[in-house]
Design a protein around this nucleic acid. Structure first.
Lengths: 341, 341
DNA sequence: TTGTATGCGTTATCAG
DNA sequence: CTGATAACGCATACAA
């Protein structure tokens, strides 16, 4: 087989047909004689023909591609979401181009720009840790290209969003701790600029006040939830206290597992001396000792949903773009790290 | 701003220039007057111009896109690799289109075909669990499109591969157990059709025989390493034995952590009654109790390497395609699950 | 430094 | 059922 690309003209010439007919045959157009189709397909296969998507896209002004921007690829939650997106998109004949913002606004901005130039049919985004200014999404909004946010979504932009009820999740997690008798509850979370962290935080506070527990600022710790951050936080902001808190609500299972591990090393019994509650229901929460109580965050399902919505929007381009917020269920999963026996 | 797409012709007309000049100006072509460039850029920005990649690709016969096919997106190892690929590719101005084979040969085949039609500049692949027939890659080979495999690589195809020395890793893991005094070592692993599992298995066997331990077939267990498989395996093939084995070598940390958790529930003390060694050095191996001894598999670095190689191949298309195998280091990480104190 | 002309491969329209 | 033709938007060889 040679390196030269075969085009419909090559096929047409060899078959004594026009390029138009070959094109139609290849698309299984109903108006083409089935004998003709057979011949075309046979020769196409024989000569190693492959359709040229650029030419086709150029002509059709559509790419069958969906852009995805996530903060990082390598977290259990995000990879579940991506898996769901890929599966759904692929089933519907879409490709996905994935890029990471690496939690940087500048990178996110440049990624958005790239996807814009690539003329993705839709863009799916979870915001970076630090994004303040949302102007870079304006190009998609102006051109009315479907834009769907999930998990870390902007408040200021009028676009479809898929989330869980983070306020409620934060409330329920805290409520559970209170019900188990814990009162001095430290909340360790990410930048409250982002809805996910802010809403959980609000839920936490509300649960406290609803139960006549005073919210104390020193019980609110905000960092990037990385291994280093958790290590430093536990060592410098928890273990140094004269009176240890009796529970930690950490908004990420990986961090919670890591914290649990450090606390145990330092002789803190879990949950008798200190309870821990995480977030996400990653597998890691099921292998620590004790297992970690957490909030089940349906990542894969979120991926499916967000992809489905994006594709629906592509298909119904004509209809007025209905902006909506989809809220998926997230429920408490009680395990050993919060329940004394 | 309107929905209409602006082209270089629109810009040219408004500026009283030719499309060619605008095209060159936009690319910062050296032969264009800098005043002209300024005017072009200004108007382009003002009118919301965006370059049309299809037209450009169609013209240039290059996509600046790399296709990636992985068995699944959502494993800690794979998401690290993907993260490394994305980072490297993005730095070099390439987009990545990711698809999952979901461990199915048919899906992999169709993914390869899609990437081929998308005219990716290179294809990066880790094989599905069940792929036997490698014919679907022939199209890439025939057209001399760079094809790079990593982790689960084919033996029969003459293409560049990036791997670790799985034989050696298997040997060292087993050797470590032997040195710690364990003799009845069960190896739980994936389909030995795949190099990664086969080579580790060979390493395991060699370590045994090198130390005068008889390899027994009933100590070799092969399954898909899923949670269910591990659960069943531990319950039906380990705990039912009259004489329990004294060590498990499981080729995946997630599975190892899960196995450890189950064994502990059943009253088996780790490592005094049974040792466990995993594979990958995922975070999960550091939060179980005891922590799990494992082989450090440099996923992120593998991603960087494989992307770098793919891009080098794209750039040096002229040179005879040198097929090589790159072997990254993977070393033993000793932790509590194998060392009695 | 800029312009002219052309082709990249496909598909839609219109005509037969 | 099939063909001729004209775009789609850009980049380049060649001319000026």
């Amino acid at each position: 087989m040679s390196k030269k690309e075969i085009t419909i003209y090559d096929l047409a010439e060899k078959l004594g047909l026009s390029a138009a007919t070959v094109s139609r045959a290849l698309k299984d157009h109903p108006a083409i004689n089935s004998e003709t189709k057979k011949k075309v397909f046979a020769l196409a296969k024989k000569m190693g023909y492959r359709t040229n998507k650029f030419a086709s896209n150029l002509r059709k002004q559509k790419t069958n591609t969906i852009g995805v921007i996530v903060p990082r690829l390598n977290s259990p939650f995000m990879s579940s979401v991506l898996s769901g997106i890929e599966k759904t998109a692929n089933n519907k004949g879409y490709n996905i181009i994935i890029s990471q913002s690496l939690e940087s606004e500048a990178k996110e901005r440049s990624n958005v720009f790239t996807h814009f130039n690539n003329r993705v049919d839709a863009l799916i985004v979870s915001l970076s840790y630090e994004t303040d200014n949302m102007d870079h999404f304006q190009s998609f909004i102006n051109k009315e290209i479907p834009l769907v946010f999930f998990d870390r979504v902007p408040e200021s932009i009028n676009a479809t969003k898929v989330v869980i009820d983070n306020f409620r999740a934060g409330y329920e997690a805290t409520l559970h701790l209170i019900e188990q008798g814990y009162k001095d509850i430290v909340h360790i979370t990410g930048n409250i600029k982002r809805n996910v962290y802010k809403d959980r935080f609000e839920g936490y506070k509300r649960a406290l006040t609803d139960h006549n527990i005073l919210y104390r600022e020193d019980n609110f710790i905000c960092n990037d939830l990385s291994e280093d951050a958790i290590y430093n936080c536990i060592h410098n902001q928890i273990l140094t206290r004269k009176k240890l808190p009796d529970a930690l609500f950490i908004t990420n299972d990986t961090s919670a597992a890591f914290a649990l591990s450090i606390l145990k090393e330092n002789g803190i019994k879990i949950p008798s001396k200190m309870a821990i509650i995480g977030f996400n229901n990653d597998l890691i929460s099921k292998v620590t000792e004790p297992n970690i109580t957490t909030i089940n965050y349906p990542g894969y399902q979120m991926g499916e949903t967000v992809a489905r919505i994006a594709i629906e929007k592509i298909d119904n381009k004509s209809e007025k773009d209905v902006t909506s917020t989809v809220i998926l269920n997230a429920e408490l999963v009680v395990r050993g790290s919060t329940v004394k026996r």
